[in-house]
């Protein structure tokens, strides 16, 4: 279980996260929704050690992750699919996948995981030797997810996986999120596409200007008037 307690992050004088707390229970899909600048990406970056927390703690199965280096957090099975996909454009699809498995030494299992990624995303297999920079946005997102799966995540965090993608691809990505979760991976999902996120989520948290203002199951939040007017574009 991932447990965030009173987490604060400062960027210079800006107080980006103002002491938030939430939990991601094992085997669940949890989503954090909120507008631009609410602190969603910052939360994920603080969990994985890309930005330093100014106070509070992040613990993973009872172990304190705060202050740990990103590479060590990733080795514990906490993996991030970053915003904007961040595939390595000058490397091939195959090399990108190998980087996902960079810290792993169990070669035969890595090979079978690669096959599994290819069966989830047959397009990636077709483009194995192609540079990632030549892929379409949707294919790059598939690669980013596939690359993360190569790390064998216990907790998969995804930052805006649907951003800028065609509806069909968005649906596919969410289907795969559901499938990954069914196989036992815990998912922490961040989305501006609140409807899609809440539909797959077991639990949701609403983040506003660095604070958590609302929480509930996915269904409860979908039915909540405040959520409907602020994030689902429906008259309240």
């Amino acid at each position: 279980m991932l447990k965030i307690d009173n987490l604060s992050v400062h960027y210079g004088g800006i107080h980006a996260l103002q002491g938030i707390g939430f939990e991601v229970p094992d085997g669940k899909i949890v989503t954090l929704i909120g507008a631009n600048g609410a602190g969603k990406s910052t939360t994920l970056k603080a969990i994985i050690g890309l930005v330093a927390a100014s106070s509070g703690s992040v613990s993973w199965n009872g172990e304190d992750l705060t202050g740990m280096m990103t590479k060590d957090i990733v080795k514990k099975g906490v993996v991030l699919v970053p915003e904007g996909r961040r595939v390595f454009p000058n490397l091939t699809v195959d090399e990108n996948l190998s980087l996902g498995a960079f810290s792993r030494t169990d070669k035969p299992v890595v090979a079978s995981d690669r096959d599994k990624v290819f069966s989830l995303f047959p397009r990636l297999k077709e483009r194995m030797k192609q540079k990632a920079g030549t892929l379409s946005g949707g294919e790059q997102q598939m690669l980013a997810v596939g690359r993360a799966l190569m790390t064998r995540p216990k907790l998969l965090m995804m930052d805006e996986p649907s951003l800028g993608l065609a509806p069909l691809i968005v649906k596919m990505i969410f289907d795969i999120v559901r499938e990954i979760n069914k196989e036992g991976t815990t998912v922490l999902l961040i989305e501006q596409n609140a409807k899609a996120a809440l539909e797959v989520a077991d639990r949701g948290y609403v983040l506003e200007t660095g604070r958590i203002t609302l929480t509930g199951t996915g269904k409860e939040l979908l039915a909540d008037d405040r959520v409907r007017s602020a994030y689902l574009g429906e008259a309240g």
Partner: peptide, 24 residues
Amino acid sequence: TKTGLAMRAVSTDLDAARLMAIDV
């Protein structure tokens, strides 16, 4: 080599390389 792959990854995107558990 694997070291070379890490070098190419770090040179493209430092943070993304960290997310791959590469020792930057």
